[in-house]
Design a protein around this nucleic acid. Structure first.
Lengths: 164, 164
DNA sequence: TGCATCACTATACAAGATGTCCAGTGATTT
DNA sequence: AAATCACTGGACATCTTGTATAGTGATGCA
């Protein structure tokens, strides 16, 4: 009876309903399928199908718990740019991955070869983490900077709102 | 009858059960409270109480949907280090926050003043995003590097496993 | 030593959600 | 015109949730 979304299915990865659903789940991630369907004004089966499709396509990869590292005792977040010996990226990456406090590593263009995000409990602890990184075979130069504040915390919301 | 965790409550932010619970939810985030209690071998009420406590303390901040930006059409991730005019951090941060493709901004020590993570659909699109950033009043210098690969994707698992 | 407190177990019950069907409808494709 | 597709709306049994309560062992404190 109702209906009326714009259905230019596939090709365009996300349509309006997908975006609204993801936005809803972004704001209240523990909502069940039924509650989502009520809020969006569509049938439950539709929400279920959309979620399945998003998961299947790999757009939605899951609902991991978001942890506040600071609240867990990791007061510091720091970034490191490192230059590595030619052809050692694989090995260095593995070495970095073995360090617990290393939260993220990217290979980048530009002067630095690898870019690392890490956390530490204190300055002394950060020193220890840095030392561990320097000790990884293949690491030639490492420069660190500490995050003083985070004016824009990690977000995807604006990209979804753009669709809406 | 059973029991036997180490209960050195509070002070230590996370105990063994907390860590195991968070690890479980990291791996299978859509598990319900009941299923978690079964897997962990504790009573449902215990899991419920732990989750409430973690949420209350702010260690667990929620279960946001994890989106694969690449699958959403944002093929590129890039980082920018920018230097800004003295005393303009607030304003610049707001300007950056207004750009949809800006996913994260940190103020850092070291040469650059702000560090930005952003995404784009293509090289041309990235150019557009960079131009928008340069146009933010107060931005004096901007250098960009593109993420070629991500040897270590964002993770907190190792920090939890350390507790276990 | 003795009592209060705390975290946990174990169980219960009503209310609600989920997984899974299916028939029906309108729009799009062929 | 027929087939296809996404969606609606309803139904059903089964499972989960929110909430409560009594009982147990360990810890803390007077």
């Amino acid at each position: 009876m109702t209906s009326g979304e714009q259905l230019e299915h596939s090709d365009q990865p996300l349509d309006l309903l997908d975006a609204r659903l993801l936005l809803l789940l972004t704001d209240e991630p523990r909502l069940g399928v039924l509650e989502c369907s009520r809020r969006l004004g569509v049938a439950r089966g539709t929400v279920q199908a959309r979620l399945d499709r998003l998961l299947g396509r790999g757009v939605l990869t899951g609902f991991p718990p978001a942890l506040d590292l600071a609240a867990m005792g990791y007061a510091l977040t720091a970034f490191a740019v490192l230059e590595i010996a030619q052809g050692r990226r694989q090995g260095v990456s593995e070495g970095l991955a073995a360090i617990n406090e290393v939260c993220e590593v990217h290979a980048t263009t530009g002067q630095g070869d690898l870019f690392v995000r890490m956390v530490a409990r204190s300055n002394a602890d950060l020193q220890r983490v840095i030392d561990e990184m320097v000790d990884v075979p293949g690491v030639e130069r490492l420069s660190t900077s500490i995050a003083l504040s985070t004016p824009v915390p990690p977000r995807v919301r604006p990209l979804l709102e753009k669709i809406t």
